[in-house]
Lab assay of single mutants.
Amino acid sequence: EDYYQILGVPRNASQKEIKKAYYQLAKKYHPDTNKDDPKAKEKFSQLAEAYEVLSDEVKRKQYDA
């Protein structure tokens, strides 16, 4: 799945936009606030993985290549 789609940001998003999108979605899908939703944990880990790659310039360049 596309990391940009997961975070809901365009491919040319700035680091600030990526961070903002991640924090909004992380708050929304955090397992502690969605105890009754088994998919929230999965969504949250996808968000974390996408953010880890896109927030790191080197990893992001490799991902975009």
Rank of each mutant, 00 (worst) to 15 (best):
K59F: 04
D2Q: 04
Y22R: 01
P10M: 08
F44L: 09
Y3R: 02
E52M: 12
A65T: 08
G8K: 08
Y23K: 13
V9K: 01
K61S: 06
N12E: 06
S55M: 06
D37V: 05
K16T: 15
R60E: 01
D2V: 04
D36P: 05
Y29E: 04
P38Q: 09
V58T: 10
H30F: 10
L7S: 00
L54Q: 00
P31N: 13
F44Y: 14
D32L: 08
K61N: 07
R11H: 14
L25D: 02
G8N: 10
T33E: 12
D36L: 10
D36K: 09
P31V: 08
V9W: 00
K59M: 06
V58I: 12
Q46A: 13
T33P: 08
D56W: 02
E17M: 13
Y3M: 04
V53I: 10
S14Q: 06
Y23M: 15
L25F: 04
Q46V: 12
V53L: 04
D2E: 04
A21L: 03
P10T: 10
E52Y: 10
S45M: 14
P31D: 09
E17F: 08
E57Y: 10
A48H: 13
E1F: 15
K16M: 15
K61F: 05
F44N: 04
L7C: 02
T33D: 08
D36C: 08
I6K: 04
A40T: 07
E49Y: 08
V9G: 00
G8F: 04
I6W: 07
S55T: 05
H30D: 15
N34T: 09
V53N: 03
Q15R: 11
Y29F: 12
Y51R: 02
H30K: 07
Y22K: 01
Y3F: 11
N34L: 13
N34S: 08
Y4S: 00
S45T: 09
Y4G: 00
E1G: 13
H30N: 11
R11C: 07
Y63A: 02
F44E: 03
Y22L: 02
D37A: 04
K20N: 15
L25M: 10
Q5N: 09
D37E: 05
E52I: 10
A65V: 09
Y51C: 03
V58F: 13
S45H: 11
K16E: 15
N12H: 09
L54K: 00
K19I: 14
L7W: 00
A40W: 10
L47M: 07
D2L: 05
A65F: 05
Y4W: 02
P38M: 13
T33F: 14
K35V: 10
Y4A: 01
D2F: 05
K27L: 13
Y63I: 03
D37C: 06
Q46H: 09
E49R: 14
Y63G: 02
V53T: 14
A65S: 10
V9N: 00
Q15H: 10
A26C: 10
L25H: 04
K39S: 12
Y22Q: 01
H30T: 06
Y22V: 02
N12K: 08
Q15G: 09
R60A: 01
H30G: 10
K39F: 13
E42A: 12
Y3P: 03
D64L: 02
S55A: 07
A48D: 05
E42D: 11
A40K: 06
Y4V: 00
L54P: 00
A50S: 03
K59E: 03
K43V: 10
T33I: 12
F44T: 04
A21R: 09
L54I: 04
D36E: 12
D32P: 06
R60W: 01
A48L: 13
L25K: 06
A50V: 07
D64M: 02
L7D: 00
L54W: 01
I6Y: 04
P31H: 10
K43E: 05
E17R: 12
V58Q: 12
K61G: 08
K16I: 15
Y51L: 04
E49W: 09
K20Y: 14
S14M: 06
P38H: 07
A26T: 11
A26F: 15
K16R: 12
K39P: 05
Y23A: 12
K27P: 06
D37F: 05
L25R: 07
Q5L: 10
K35N: 12
R60N: 02
K41P: 11
Q62Y: 07
Q46P: 03
S45V: 11
Y23C: 07
K39G: 12
K28A: 10
Y63C: 02
K16A: 15
D32N: 10
A13R: 01
D64Q: 02
L54D: 00
K20I: 15
N34R: 06
Y29N: 05
Y4K: 00
V53W: 06
N34E: 07
E17Q: 12
A65G: 09
P10L: 09
H30I: 07
A26L: 14
Y4F: 02
Y51T: 01
S14D: 09
I18M: 04
E1A: 13
P38G: 06
P31Q: 11
A26P: 01
A21S: 05
Y3T: 01
K35P: 14
N12F: 08
D36N: 11
Y51A: 03
N34G: 07
K19Y: 14
P38T: 08
D37I: 05
Y63K: 02
G8H: 10
Y3G: 01
K59P: 01
A26H: 15
A48I: 13
Y3H: 04
L7H: 01
K39L: 13
A40L: 11
D56N: 06
L54A: 01
E1M: 15
K59S: 06
Y51F: 12
D36I: 06
K41H: 14
